[in-house]
């Protein structure tokens, strides 16, 4: 089924939308979640949450690309879950609270500043990626967006793990240089 038809199902509030989404992009989503969480059960939970988020967001949203829209949600949910799990492991639930409390001591960075900087960084990243050779770009995105292992990348692109690692090293150095030139200090 075409993405536009699936989105139409969401707009019609038809539950078939979720089964069609799962049928078409379930494996894609699960792969992203697994790469981040390294746990099947957690990954499946994140993917289910993502379907629910999409259900709640469409309408009024009408994403241009359902695949990447869904992928972003899965990625964010998985990263949040991982962060929460590691925070709980560190301080039995107290560390996150303490960090929140201490944040009050840090000089204010307005919401506007944060958003402006985020837009700037996104713009720099997009321009950086556009200028990369397609293969280096795909490898970079597979590693740092999809969180794929070097082995997976090497298998898919039919290159050695060493070649993938060298490509990533070069791209990271280039990115560092670009970020410095743009005056971005994360």
């Amino acid at each position: 089924m075409e993405d536009s038809q699936i989105i139409a199902l969401y707009w019609d509030r038809s539950e078939e939308a979720i089964s069609e989404t799962a049928g078409k992009y379930g494996k894609y989503c699960l792969a992203i979640a697994r790469n981040i969480l390294n746990n099947d059960e957690d990954a499946e939970e994140c993917v289910s949450d993502a379907y629910l988020r999409v259900w709640n967001a469409i309408p009024p949203m009408r994403p241009n690309r359902l695949q990447t829209y869904l992928g972003r949600i899965v990625r964010n949910l998985s990263l949040n879950k991982r962060e929460k799990a590691s925070a709980e492991k560190r301080g039995a639930g107290q560390i996150p609270l303490i960090l929140d409390e201490l944040e009050e001591c840090i000089p204010n960075e307005t919401r506007e500043d944060v958003v402006t900087e985020a837009i700037l960084i996104r713009d720099v990243l997009d321009r950086f990626l556009a200028a990369l050779p397609p293969d280096a770009r795909k490898i970079f995105v597979r590693r740092y967006w999809y969180m794929s292992s070097l082995k997976e990348i090497a298998e898919e692109y039919r290159i050695s793990e060493g070649t993938a690692a060298v490509s990533l090293l070069r791209t990271r150095r280039k990115l560092k240089s670009v970020l410095e030139k743009e005056g971005i200090h994360l």
Partner: peptide
């Protein structure tokens, strides 16, 4: 972590381009 989050916001076309093959 901040950089990783920002990479999450890159343009759709680069995400789609690098999507894992089934």
């Amino acid at each position: 972590e901040r950089l990783l989050n920002q990479i999450g916001e890159i343009d759709d076309r680069y995400i789609a381009e690098a999507a894992p093959a089934a």
